[in-house]
Design a protein around this nucleic acid. Sequence first.
DNA 1: GCGTTTGATTGATCTCGATCAAGGTAAGAA
DNA 2: TTCTTACCTTGATCGAGATCAATCAAACGC
Lengths: 249, 249
Amino acid sequence: MKHAPLIAKNHMRCGDCPIRHKAVCAYCEPPELAKLDAIKSYRTFQAGETIVWAGEEVDVLGSVVSGVATLSRTLPDGRRQMVGLLLPSDFVGRPGRRTAPYDVVAANEVMICQFTKPQFEKLVSSTPALERRLLDMTLDELDAAREWMLLLGRKTAREKIASLLVIIARRDAALNSTTVGNGLRFALPLTREAMSDYLGLTIETVSRQISALKKSGIIVLEDARHVRVPDYVALLDEAGDDSDGGFIS
Amino acid sequence: MKHAPLIAKNHMRCGDCPIRHKAVCAYCEPPELAKLDAIKSYRTFQAGETIVWAGEEVDVLGSVVSGVATLSRTLPDGRRQMVGLLLPSDFVGRPGRRTAPYDVVAANEVMICQFTKPQFEKLVSSTPALERRLLDMTLDELDAAREWMLLLGRKTAREKIASLLVIIARRDAALNSTTVGNGLRFALPLTREAMSDYLGLTIETVSRQISALKKSGIIVLEDARHVRVPDYVALLDEAGDDSDGGFIS
DNA sequence: GCGTTTGATTGATCTCGATCAAGGTAAGAA
DNA sequence: TTCTTACCTTGATCGAGATCAATCAAACGC
């Protein structure tokens, strides 16, 4: 069985940003980088802070520099389902839309490299490559959402947990490249509750399945928030499919 | 509780097409309609025929004129999850992508108004309004996918069925406007099996929940494929949330 | 120190939807 | 007509994950 490469393609750095903005990648002309550089500023959100309320004006537009943010929808009776996960280099904001139908919440301390909205939109209009890049990113998000639907609709609790670990491992490796021998080590940027919202499970089931993967030797729990994976391929096999494991590119 | 309007916004007709293409809507300049008109042709697929195989070259690009097509992903062991539903006026094809990670299958006889790929892509490059429209449509699909994730992750079987009926009712009403008093009547364009793939359930559960909704008086089954809804708001309430019910606009 | 809070784990039990199985119904072929 | 096939329905039982509940551990304020 062939597996997708662990490390994602790189994106060009925007000026002195501590991350690689996906919105300005190799497809864009270098001059655009300087233009983006001129209209950006940084903004920080605390863990638990809501960055965007569902239905209200979206006043953030930029890239996640550090930390993790979640997109989630809530039913009137309180049931919650996470519908998106924003990790460093992911884009925040909806080009051409005033509002979003979901909450954006900081899972831990989040720094965002923010562009001023009117200036960014002016830049987009005058830069076809940038607009095409936004379409490309949105298609990637759509693919990720559809992979996620397969997970929610048809995978077992154990497969769901393994799939989530694969996604986090890939994203972590793409940013930090902390391989240990032929294994991996990474931090879980989400609480058990956030994981349960992601996977359509309860906290208890998440906890039990993580314990089960530990007992099977697939993962080693250093503490509740740090995981070692001795054999990455074994974890991939637990995830139940041979695709890229729902990598949100 | 306020509910979204039943009928979707209209889209401008492209020449003599029997449907309203979403790709060429009121946002686009009228001259573009004529240009699209010049590069189109019609193509028909039989029920059950695969229009696009997962991973293979996508050689279709256009709009669904009639019939219903489904997008679905399959796990190696055969478990299947539908990840998209294409009804008349929906766009088929992925701008700027060679392949798709899912199968596109005709649920019944499907007619597609197809554009020649290189010419359509040339038109898109030279028409910023069209490119922006494609981005807008992709964002709509993303919103629909996320609504669907909420359904798959957190709704009960009964709520799932009611939500699907709402989606079909809305789409049907937008196209045919067949209201009956303050109720509705429409055909189910999907088999029970396709519904179960859509909702992450088994055929048996779909059948049982439809029977249950019938017994509750929420719906009337004229036969296995035709439904009457005496009270649309009652059905909406069964769907479990006050949103637009996952309307794929 | 101690009490409180927040997040994680584990156990006991229940329930919704899956699974296994048997029939029913309508359309089409021989 | 009867046989076949595809699709749908209903019943009986099972089991994965939810729910209810207790315990534990680390962090924090007083």
